[in-house]
Simulated scan of single mutants.
Amino acid sequence: MRRFSLALVLGLLASTAAHADVTVYSAGPGGLIKSLAAGFTAKTGIKANVFQATTGKVMARLEAEASNPVADVVISASWGTATDFAAKGLLLSYESPNAATVPDFLKTEGAVAQGVAGIIIAWNTKSDTPMPTDWSDLTKPEYKDLVTLPDPAASGGTYTLVEAFYANGMTDILQGLKDNGAIVAGANKAALNPVLQGAKAAVFAGVDYITMGAAAKGETIEAIFPASGTVVAPRPIMILKSSQNQEDAKKFVDYVLSEEGQKEVAKVYLMPSRTDIVVDRPLIGDLKLLSKEGAPSRDEVLAGFKKIFN
């Protein structure tokens, strides 16, 4: 009888270990991580517990739990998170077999892009302004006092674009925006809302998937990829080295990078990180990308921006 009880207990423990939950902390669209978690559970039988918030709140929670880590997987809206975590030795080295068609610049040891956002001009199609085709159009008289832009200190995408402008000698456009009455409006949502409401005509450094999502809901807004080039903001997915459930965490990353998972990414208008996923929107290979090589440090970029916009 004792032998049977011991076998039963060991069997239950093994069963529990085999079906341990995966805990995922995710920045970005709440609908996306919910659909990914549901699809993952349906596919594997493993439950995914999700905490969804802004990147800042996700980082704050991770820091608060540093002495007793809870998260297995982290998805950030900033590639800088992956760079920082890797430098601190916090990431498990893992390359999913489903990452074979992800371009090299969207993956590194311990991180791979879940999806990619593009930085665009978000233009109100009923603003009685000419349709802009490049960043410099927003410095023209037709756009006097009608442009908003997110603060690069609050928006990772805007920072990446401003960084590229410094690297490519394009800061005259920033000065032109300032001289034309452009308003720095805080984070992405604060910059977009006045354009959606018709008080302003365009967002310089808008986010493509947010703009496309608003258009799909009937807003008179269009995402425009500037002719001179733009930047993208990869959203890294990472397994923490502190995870007590690394094998199932790997399965979650595999699912996100599977064809099914990447199509869920595309449903919220993000670019899939895999180049073999075909969706009806501009993809990485369609874009002219600005290099950031030779850009000043982050502190110098932000100081330069602040000097221009007082």
Rank of each mutant, 00 (worst) to 15 (best):
M238E: 00
G294N: 09
Y94H: 04
V112W: 06
V116E: 02
A117R: 07
A153H: 07
T220C: 00
W79L: 10
L146S: 05
I224K: 07
V50A: 01
L12P: 00
R274W: 07
S15C: 12
L161V: 10
L196C: 08
A249F: 02
R2Y: 09
M212I: 10
D208V: 11
F40N: 01
Y143Q: 06
L92G: 00
G118N: 10
G198F: 10
A191R: 09
A122G: 12
A48F: 02
K107Y: 06
G11D: 03
K47Q: 12
F204R: 09
E260Y: 08
N180Y: 10
V70Y: 04
T171V: 15
G80A: 07
L302H: 06
V279L: 08
K267L: 12
V268I: 15
K178P: 00
G56T: 13
L62Q: 09
F105I: 11
L192G: 01
E259W: 05
A37K: 01
E65T: 08
P69G: 01
Y269E: 06
K107D: 00
P272D: 09
K241R: 13
V147E: 02
E222L: 14
I221F: 08
L149Q: 10
L177A: 05
A86H: 03
V24F: 05
L289W: 10
K292C: 04
L62C: 03
V73I: 07
I221D: 04
L13N: 01
E95N: 14
A111K: 02
A27F: 04
T83Q: 15
S15V: 12
Y255N: 04
L13I: 08
S291V: 09
K288R: 13
A42L: 10
D172A: 13
P132H: 10
I277H: 05
L177F: 05
Q114V: 08
D280I: 09
V147C: 02
A295F: 11
E300F: 10
D137A: 06
G294F: 12
L174T: 07
Q114Y: 12
N180A: 02
A202V: 07
I173T: 14
L149T: 13
G80Q: 07
K107H: 06
F105W: 11
P272M: 09
A111F: 03
E222A: 13
K47P: 00
R281Q: 15
G30C: 03
E259F: 05
G294P: 01
A53Y: 11
D208Q: 15
L12G: 05
V162Q: 08
A153K: 13
S5H: 14
V203W: 12
D172W: 13
T129K: 14
E264D: 12
A201K: 04
Q52T: 12
K292S: 14
A249M: 03
D254W: 04
G56F: 13
A38H: 10
V301W: 11
T54W: 10
